[in-house]
C-alpha cells in the first residue's frame, strides 16, 4: 500500500485535519505535563513550558470565578493563565460552538481513540448501547456535576475537582498528586469509551456543560438544507454525540461539539446540504 493510498484513506470522508489538531494538542499537553515533573527536580526542558496542568485548564477559570468576584484572588493552584484560557475558550464557543471539546481537549481525543476500537468491535451497534430514555436523562448529569464543583470550590476555596478530574489524572498518573478518585473515573471513562463515544463529555464533563450552552447562540452553526437533504441519516450516524441532525434545520443541541463530521465536508453525501455557516436565512 503506497503512502498516497494511505493518505487518501485517512483523508476520505472525515475531517482529517481535526485529527491532526487533536493529536497536536494531546502531545503538547503531555509534553508540558512531563516537563512540569522534570522541572521540579531541576531537569526541565528550558524551551518548553513547565506550567502545571491546573494553570493550563480553562475550567480552572470557571471554578475560581466566585472567589475572584468576592475576594479578587484565585483559588489555590489557579492562576491568570486559567482565566485567560477560559476567556479564549468562551470566545471560540461564541463564534464556533464548543470547538475546545471537539478539536482541542485531550480527554475528548483519547476517548475518540479508544472509541475507534469499540467501533471496530461492535460495528453499527457502537455508540447505541444506552437506551434512549436513560440516555436523555443522563445527559443532564453534567449540569449536576457543574453545580457541585462550583459550589464546593466556592465553599472550600480549594480545587476540589482535581481529586476526581480524569483529565488531570491522565497527564499526572505518574505523580503522587493523583487521587484514587480521579484514577477510578479515568479508568471508567476509558472503559466506557469502548461502548459509548465520548461518555465523559456526554454525561459528566462540567466544562462541556458550560461550553455546550454556546450552541444556543453561536455565530457559526451547523445548518441543514432541507431542500437538498436526502434524509439518508448519514449525519445522524456520523455524529459522535448522537444528535439527530437529520431532524434539525439548525443544530442548537447543547451537546454539539462542532466536530463537523456531519457536514458535507465529511459524511453528508450531498454538497451544500449540511454546512457550517454564519448569517443567511434564519430558521
Amino acid at each position: 500500500m503506497t503512502v498516497a493510498t494511505l493518505w487518501k484513506r485517512f483523508t476520505r470522508r472525515r475531517i482529517w485535519i481535526r485529527s491532526l489538531v487533536q493529536l497536536f494538542f494531546f502531545v503538547l499537553i503531555a509534553l508540558i505535563a512531563v516537563n512540569h515533573t522534570l522541572a521540579e527536580s531541576g531537569q526541565g526542558i528550558s524551551w518548553l513550558s513547565n506550567a502545571s496542568l491546573h494553570a493550563l485548564c480553562p475550567f480552572g477559570g470557571v471554578v475560581t470565578l466566585y472567589q475572584y468576584a468576592t475576594t479578587g484572588s484565585f483559588v489555590q493552584k489557579i492562576h491568570e493563565s486559567s482565566f485567560i484560557l477560559m476567556i479564549l475558550g468562551l470566545l471560540l464557543a461564541v463564534l464556533f460552538g464548543p470547538v475546545l471539546c471537539g478539536w482541542v481537549c485531550p480527554l475528548g481525543t483519547i476517548q475518540e481513540w479508544v472509541g475507534k476500537v469499540g467501533r471496530k468491535l461492535f460495528k453499527r451497534r457502537y455508540n447505541h448501547f444506552v437506551p434512549a430514555r436513560l440516555d436523555a436523562v443522563l445527559r443532564y448529569a453534567r449540569y449536576g456535576v457543574l453545580a457541585w464543583v462550583v459550589y464546593m470550590t466556592a465553599a472550600s476555596s480549594t480545587l476540589i475537582f482535581a481529586e476526581y478530574d480524569p483529565y488531570f489524572t491522565l497527564f499526572n498518573f505518574w505523580s503522587s498528586e493523583v487521587a484514587i478518585g480521579g484514577a477510578v473515573i479515568l479508568g471508567l471513562t476509558l472503559l466506557s469509551s469502548l461502548f459509548v463515544e465520548r461518555p465523559w463529555c456526554k454525561y459528566a464533563c462540567p466544562y462541556g456543560a458550560v461550553l455546550g450552552l454556546s450552541n444556543l447562540f453561536r455565530v457559526f452553526r451547523i445548518r441543514r438544507n432541507v431542500g437538498t437533504c436526502k434524509l439518508d441519516k448519514a449525519c445522524d450516524i456520523a455524529c459522535p454525540m448522537n444528535i439527530p441532525v437529520s431532524q434539525r434545520t439548525i443544530v442548537r443541541d447543547v451537546q454539539c461539539i462542532s466536530c463537523l463530521e456531519c457536514t458535507a465536508e465529511a459524511h453528508c453525501p450531498v454538497a451544500g446540504t449540511v454546512e457550517f455557516v454564519a448569517g443567511g436565512k434564519k430558521s
Partner: peptide, 8 residues
C-alpha cells in the same frame, strides 16, 4: 459565510 475545517 461558509466555514470549512481548514479555516476553522
Amino acid at each position: 459565510i461558509r466555514l470549512g475545517s481548514k479555516w476553522l
